[in-house]
Amino acid sequence: MQDIIKDSLKKHISYSEYTELMTQLVADESTTGADKTEALINYTKLNERRMKRWDKTIKLSEDAKTKIAQYKKPTTWLVLTESWCGDAAHVIPAINKVANENENINLKLVFRDENDALMNQFLTNGGKSIPKLVMIDDETGNVVNTFGPRPSEATKLVSDYKETHGVLTPEFKEDLQRWYNKDKGQNAIADLLQLLDV
Rank of each mutant, 00 (worst) to 15 (best):
V79E: 01
D191Q: 08
P149Y: 00
N47C: 09
L40C: 06
Q24G: 08
N42D: 14
D28S: 06
N104L: 02
S152L: 01
P131E: 04
L109D: 11
G126Y: 04
T146Q: 04
P149E: 00
E103K: 15
M22I: 10
A154C: 01
D7V: 02
L195I: 14
N102G: 00
K132G: 05
N181D: 15
E153H: 05
Q186Y: 06
S61G: 13
Q121Y: 08
E101H: 07
K67M: 02
T146I: 14
L109A: 04
D87T: 12
L157M: 13
D7W: 04
K72A: 12
S129N: 09
I58Y: 11
I4T: 15
R53M: 08
V91M: 00
S8F: 07
K45D: 04
L40Y: 14
T164C: 00
L123T: 12
P93Y: 10
E38C: 08
I68Q: 00
E153R: 05
A190F: 05
F172N: 01
A190C: 03
K73N: 09
D183K: 12
A34Y: 01
P149V: 07
M135L: 12
K11T: 13
H165E: 13
L60M: 03
D191H: 06
A99H: 00
K59R: 14
E48Y: 10
A117H: 01
G33Q: 03
E48N: 15
M119T: 14
N96P: 03
M22Q: 11
A39R: 13
